[in-house]
């Protein structure tokens, strides 16, 4: 068995254009979480790089609302699996263009607008194992910081994380390939047969 491709953030456009749908990867370095409210806020307000606690260029935005534990001001991830990505579809193309991120990570894949933005901007979609919250939390070495914790709450805040050997599969690449769509097309064929249509 071939081991996973090792990726280290920040990633360049060339790094991600070298990836293809189906690649099993292992991610290390800094990533940030962001789900419904982070997407809505950042896309609507488009803050300048200096207004954010961290430079998003080259990093991965992880669709995740973690359970965190705080002790003496230090946060530890208790459970941190991916959330359903498609809810972010209406914001994601503007997010990719606006902030120079190179990876989106979540579960279930995304739509056509995101796929196009991946190709135009040099970015990929990683599918993380949905529900494997403890296993994935244990791949978070350190919680570097958090933004909008008070306003958005722990599940919706932007967490800055350092991960090591975080497993994922490239399911949408920067060349227009989308495994989720392929599987949907295949199942649609069988679905029609089962309905006799």
């Amino acid at each position: 068995m071939v081991g996973p491709l090792r990726l280290k953030t920040p990633l360049s456009a060339d790094d991600v254009r070298g990836l293809k749908a189906g690649d099993v990867v292992s991610i290390s370095g800094m990533i940030v979480t962001g789900r419904d409210r982070v997407h809505k806020y950042l896309v609507e307000n488009m803050p300048q790089p200096g207004e954010l606690p961290v430079d998003l260029a080259g990093t991965i935005i992880y669709h995740c609302g973690p359970v965190m534990r705080e002790k003496d001001g230090v946060f530890t991830a208790v459970a941190a699996g991916p959330t359903t990505s498609i809810r972010m579809e209406m914001y994601e193309p503007r997010f990719i263009r606006g902030f120079g991120i190179r990876g989106i990570m979540g579960k279930g894949g995304m739509g056509g607008h995101t796929l196009q933005a991946l190709r135009e901007n040099g970015c990929v979609y990683f599918n993380a194992v949905g529900g494997a919250a403890v296993y994935l939390a244990d791949r978070i070495e350190r919680v570097i910081g958090v933004w909008k914790l008070e306003e958005f709450g722990p599940a919706e805040a932007l967490w800055i994380l350092e991960v090591k050997d975080f497993p994922a599969v490239v399911t949408m690449d920067a060349h227009g390939n989308n495994i989720h769509r392929e599987i949907e097309q295949r199942s649609l064929g069988r679905f029609r047969e089962l309905l006799g249509k």
Binding site: V24, G65, V78, G81, A132, A133, V134, Y135, P167
Partner: peptide
């Protein structure tokens, strides 16, 4: 991918139980 996902899932189930942490963050 099906096999590796299920392996991670089952490992996750074991670790969650052993460490008394939520199986899923949601």
């Amino acid at each position: 991918p099906a096999n590796s996902s299920l392996s991670v899932i089952l490992e996750n189930v074991r670790v969650a139980r052993d460490t008394a942490r939520p199986i899923c963050q949601d």
